[in-house]
Design a protein around this nucleic acid. Structure first.
Lengths: 132, 132
DNA sequence: TATTGACTTCGAGTGCACTCGAAGGCCTAC
DNA sequence: GTAGGCCTTCGAGTGCACTCGAAGTCAATA
C-alpha cells in the first residue's frame, strides 16, 4: 500500500564523508575519487559540493574492493556496473560475468597452488640453491 | 679422483637458441632479453654474438616463471639470484627469502578465497544485483 | 652472389591502476 | 576576521613488468 518507510534500514540518505568512507573501507580518498571519475560510482554532494556517501555507495565500494582483490580488471568492473545501471533486464548478463570471473579466479588459485608447490619443493629439497 | 664427466647430465654446454627457449618456456624472446638486461640471467653467446642457452639457464628461466606466477616482484627475484651468485654462504638467506615469499603467497591464497566467497555469495543470493 | 630471416643492441612506448600536486573553496574555532 | 584543515577539480606523474621498433649483423639457402 504505502512505501515501508520506517521498516527498512536507510541506505540512500547521504551521510558519510569521503574521509569516513576511506577510513572504513581502506580505500584512499584519492582512489575513491578515481573510482568515481571512471564511472564506478556516482556520489551525491552536500550544499558545498563535497561528497556525501550513502550506505549503498559504501556497499558498492566494498564490493568493488572484493572484485579488485580477485584481480578483476577495472574494465570488467565498469562493465558490471554499466549493466547494473541498465536495470533488471541485464541480470542474466551480470551473472554470467560473475560466473566467468569466478572461473578465472579458480584457475588463478590452481596456478598459484601449483607454482607454490614448486617453491616448496625448492625449499625442502635444495634449501634455496640456483637450480629449480 | 677425476671429475665425473660422463656420469652427470650436461647442464652447462650452451645448446639452445633464444627462439627454442622461448618456445619451450612460453617466455617471449623479448622478455628473455629483458630478464638478462636486468641481471636475472647471464647467457653465453656463440661466435656470432647470438645467445646460446645452457640447460641450467633454461632451468633458471623456468624457475623465474614459477616465481613470477606467484607474483614475486622482479626486485625480489633479482635479490634471490644475487644471493645465488654470492655462493653457498648465502643459502640461509635465500631460504628465508623463499619462506617469506611462501607466507605472502599463502596470505594471497587466503585473501583470494575470502574474496571469492563474497563473489559466490553475490552469485547465489542476488543473481548479480547492485548490492554486495 | 643475393636474399631471407633470425638474431643483435638500444631506447622508447604501453597498459594498468593508482597516486600525487597545485590552486582554490568552504566551514569551524579561536 | 583569520588560521587551519578538509574538501574540491584537473591534469600530470609513478611504478611495474613487460613490449616494441629501428637499425644493423650474420649465416644459410636459392
Amino acid at each position: 500500500m504505502t512505501t515501508p518507510e520506517l521498516d527498512l534500514p536507510d541506505t540512500t540518505t547521504p551521510t558519510e564523508t569521503i574521509a569516513e568512507v576511506a577510513a572504513r573501507t581502506g580505500v584512499s580518498a584519492h582512489t575513491l575519487r578515481y573510482y568515481e571519475r571512471i564511472g564506478l560510482l556516482t556520489v551525491p554532494r552536500d550544499h558545498a559540493g563535497r561528497r556525501l556517501y550513502t550506505a549503498d555507495d559504501v556497499d558498492r565500494v566494498v564490493f568493488i574492493t572484493r572484485l579488485r582483490q580477485t584481480d578483476m580488471p577495472i574494465r570488467d568492473i565498469q562493465r558490471y556496473f554499466t549493466l547494473v545501471a541498465e536495470g533488471a533486464s541485464t541480470e542474466q548478463e551480470r551473472l554470467e560475468l560473475l560466473l566467468h570471473h569466478r572461473e578465472a579466479v579458480q584457475a588463478r588459485l590452481d596456478a598459484l597452488h601449483r607454482a607454490l608447490d614448486v617453491v616448496d619443493y625448492k625449499i625442502t629439497k635444495y634449501g634455496g640453491s640456483a637450480r629449480p
